[in-house]
């Protein structure tokens, strides 16, 4: 597939995404080379906070103004079967009327951190394809979901007044990464109190950005304009401060890092696990197997071994 051809229509974009999800590095790297550095809004928050509906409402207004918008919804892969139910687009039905909107559901591929190795590739494809803006909706299990900060230029954390979800937010590290906090479903509980609580905990970022906290009722479109304004403000802020380029650079490096990580995982597990198991069965020394793996990964393990020996109290001969 030629990259220019891929970018020309909806179906081809969809196919290209499948290709990179399938490990086609040619298309992935070509997309990476062509990215234009568009805004990626990472949307995170616990399940049931209304992330999809909120995205749908924001995207609706933006699409109406003619912006080209892509939305990626991530759902978890079942650790038992490897399958998944991807259901984010169900709440975005109203976007079907726009030709300038593209929605794709992807799975975590069972990876911790809430994103598959190829999620950055999917983003890069959409970036290169000429969209103006990408929404990336995370799984929302509220745990270990900070990977999104490596990809997004703006991070929006969605809360609800009825849940004690700020504890989860703090635990998941989203307090530190969030640029905009939205208390959604504000009609269902003490939203103002929640905002007060959050305002007390939130601090100015190292880069000088003061996190915004606002409320919304997505289903009835309340608060959507304010959110769009806040998103714009943050967008301008990172450009003015010269942070945006850094963020795009981070996404590129992260993309490459994922290739490396996947490669390592493949070497250690997917490709060789049976070979190693058989070697162990045949009586081969485990430490020799580890040496070989390290060699294959290009890690200078010899030094590590020396350091290990020098450290006191680690006992014995070491590996």
């Amino acid at each position: 597939m030629n990259i220019d051809e891929i970018m020309s229509d909806r179906k081809k974009i969809a196919k290209a995404i499948s290709e990179v999800e399938n490990g086609n590095t040619l298309i992935a790297t070509e997309a990476l080379r062509r990215i234009r550095g568009i805004d990626v809004i990472g949307v995170t928050g616990v399940p049931g906070s209304g992330k999809s509906t909120l995205i749908s409402k924001i995207a609706y207004k933006m699409a109406k103004e003619g912006k080209k918008i892509a939305i990626i919804g991530i759902d978890p892969t079942s650790p038992f079967s490897g399958g998944a139910v991807l259901g984010d687009r169900i709440r975005m039905k109203e976007l079907n009327r726009f030709d300038n909107v593209f929605i794709r559901s992807i799975s975590t591929g069972g990876k911790l951190g809430g994103m598959s190795y190829h999620t950055p590739d999917v983003i890069n494809i959409l970036d290169a394809a000429g969209f103006d803006l990408i929404f990336l909706e995370t799984v929302g299990t509220g745990q270990d979901e900070v990977d999104v900060m490596n990809i997004a230029t703006t991070i929006m954390v969605v809360l609800v007044p009825t849940l004690g979800d700020e504890v989860q937010v703090i635990k998941a590290g989203q307090l530190e990464i969030g640029d905009i906090f939205v208390v959604n479903k504000a009609d269902q509980g003490a939203a103002d109190e929640k905002i007060k609580e959050m305002t007390l905990i939130l601090k100015e970022r190292k880069d000088g950005w003061i996190p915004k906290i606002m409320k919304s009722v997505a289903v009835t479109n309340q608060g959507i304009d304010e959110i769009i304004r806040a998103l714009d403000e943050h967008k301008n802020f990172i450009i003015e401060k010269g942070i945006k380029n850094k963020k795009i650079m981070e996404r590129m490096l992260y993309t490459i890092k994922q290739y490396a990580l996947e490669r390592i995982e493949n070497i250690m597990y997917n490709e060789n696990i049976e070979k190693y198991i058989n070697q162990i069965k045949d009586g081969k020394d485990i430490s020799r197997i580890i040496d070989e793996i390290m060699l294959e990964m290009g890690v200078n393990y010899g030094k590590g071994r020396e350091i290990y020996r020098k450290v006191e109290g680690m006992g014995g001969e070491g590996p």
């Binding site: 049931g48 509906t53 139910v85 259901g87 169900i90 709440r91 289903v219």
Partner: peptide
């Protein structure tokens, strides 16, 4: 019109 929260 009502839009339901979708649960599966």
């Amino acid at each position: 019109e009502y839009i339901e929260p979708v649960i599966y």
